[in-house]
Amino acid sequence: MRSIITFCVLLLFWVLLSGQLDLWHLSWGVICTATVTYLSRDLLFKGQLDLREKGREAWRFLKYLPWLLGQIFKANLHVARLALHPRMGELIDPHIIRFRTKLKKDLSLVTFANSITLTPGTITVLIDGDRLYVHAIDRPSAEALPGEMERRVAEVYGEQ
């Protein structure tokens, strides 16, 4: 069941990349996709697969996306201002900050870490169990952690 879904996703990707729909290319696509599916059958989906739950997660993730895009845009303006500011040395105050997180699942930790990297002034350095090491470039962005972002990610993956 899991391998069939992986196979379909990979085959769709093949068709998108090759763009040719004749028999020759498609049969090669099926062969390559089958090989890759066999090699990586337990990578894409882990453990028990619950389609309805996955669908709900995907929908909540889509609702989380616009907020994330806005944050990315703000992050870029922030960095641009810092890099081009003539008295940059006074504005920045870099530190590595260590804090604990409530999130448990692998996928939500990955989303959280990537979201921290994409939002203004902070990048994730290391995850060690439930401890996160985050490098923050100035004081205000350090004080915003973990805050709102953790709550939103927990909501997306149904953790409370």
Binding site: I72, A75, N76, V79, A80, L82, A83, I92, P94, I96, T117, L118, G121, I123, V125, H135, I137
Partner: peptide, 12 residues
């Protein structure tokens, strides 16, 4: 580390 900030965001 701070160069990473400029790089990792602005280039994406």
């Amino acid at each position: 580390y701070s160069r990473m900030h400029a790089m990792g965001k602005a280039d994406t």
